[in-house]
């Protein structure tokens, strides 16, 4: 489908652009992806208002996370999260066995060092979506072998 590929290409160009910018600003080897994460945050924040329009009020936090795993993921990546784990104390782990931004690369370890670039946007997306639902969180991602990816959500309680 043409509309899917547009989103994927734009996403990878945003990452290239952000990396280019950081290279100009400092010549350290570290890449700064906070811009990409923020773009994700803004997009997640806005899309959440639309997605939850026809939805009944969420019962609790777990209900909200289930929504993220099913409908939110379905809307953006055309598939559902494969596995959701939680310790019931504000830590949630979402596992996607074939994360869409990583499926185009070779499986295994060849491009593993570049994987963090391709998950920053999605971390922001989740964080923004949750922020609009009044859940403040820190989202990190972990890639162990290529197409599968784990997102860790730490909910910040006050």
């Amino acid at each position: 489908m043409a509309d899917d590929i547009l989103f994927e290409l734009l996403h990878s160009e945003i990452i290239n652009y952000a990396l280019e910018q950081t290279k100009e600003n400092n010549d350290k080897k570290e890449s700064d992806l906070s811009v990409v994460e923020y773009i994700g945050f803004a997009a997640g924040y806005k899309i959440m208002e639309r997605l939850t329009r026809e939805w009944p009020r969420f019962k609790d936090e777990l209900d909200t996370m289930k929504f993220i795993c099913t409908d939110f993921w379905m809307c953006i990546y055309k598939k559902q999260i494969d596995n959701l784990r939680t310790n019931h104390q504000g830590v949630y782990v979402l596992q996607d066995n074939a994360f869409r931004f990583l499926t185009n690369f070779s499986n295994g370890h060849q491009y593993l060092e570049y994987a963090p670039r391709y998950v920053a946007y999605t971390c922001g997306l989740i964080r923004g979506g949750l922020a609009n639902l009044c859940i403040n969180s820190v989202v990190t991602a972990e890639v162990q072998s290529m197409p599968s990816c784990k997102f860790h959500i730490h909910v910040q309680r006050t």
């Binding site: 959440m48 208002e49 939850t52 329009r53 939805w55 009020r57 969420f58 609009n132 639902l133 009044c134």
Partner: peptide, 14 residues
């Protein structure tokens, strides 16, 4: 006496 007020709260607490 003069007005009726109706409410609606979204999932995003708006």
């Amino acid at each position: 006496d003069t007005h009726k007020i109706y409410g609606y709260v979204t999932n995003t607490r708006i």
